[in-house]
């Protein structure tokens, strides 16, 4: 019979294993804490560039976007998060009719952030931003219009 299996041995073995555990937590008690204080550190918070928190459509200084209203993104979307309203405008010079974006509606509340729309876009008109503070009180506020 091993010492650990005897009555006295059990007591000693138990005490030893418990003390080892206590030592670990005691050490932690005096080490620096790892907590990041989110709202306090808002100014210095670094979120990874590639993090996907919401879809945005970048606009240049004049307020133009690169969207050509082709609808590839809304087709690539697995669950119909993007819907595009277009209208046909006839170009005066060439006489050709061309689709123009009226409203780019994006439902943040059902987006699954799979990046298929961004991959599908031929003009890189949409991208994901890492701006994560999106919580709202009203469901309707989550349906965003991305174009200006």
């Amino acid at each position: 019979m091993k010492f650990e299996d005897t009555y006295i041995g059990t007591v000693f073995y138990t005490a030893k294993s418990l003390l080892t555990g206590l030592k670990v937590t005691l050490k932690e008690f005096f080490t620096r804490k790892v907590t990041e204080q989110y709202p306090e550190n808002r100014k210095t918070l670094q979120i990874s560039e590639r993090h996907r928190a919401r879809l945005v459509m970048p606009h240049d200084a004049e307020g133009n976007n690169r969207c050509i209203a082709c609808g590839l993104c809304s087709m690539a979307c697995p669950n119909g998060t993007i819907s595009i309203t277009t209208k046909s405008v006839t170009d005066e010079e060439s006489g050709k009719s061309k689709k123009v974006l009226v409203e780019y509606s994006y439902d943040l509340g059902s987006c699954m952030f799979c990046q298929l729309c961004v991959n599908a876009c031929p003009k890189n008109a949409i991208e994901f931003s890492n701006e994560f503070e999106n919580a709202v009180f009203d469901r309707r506020k989550l349906v965003l219009r991305l174009n200006r």
């Binding site: 989110y38 709202p39 928190a53 919401r54 987006c111 503070e133 999106n134 919580a135 009180f137 469901r139």
Partner: peptide, 15 residues
């Protein structure tokens, strides 16, 4: 309150 994301990151939940 609605917190969008799939899943939202912990900061977003705190927000």
């Amino acid at each position: 309150v609605y917190i969008p994301g799939c899943p939202p990151r912990p900061e977003a939940i705190l927000y």
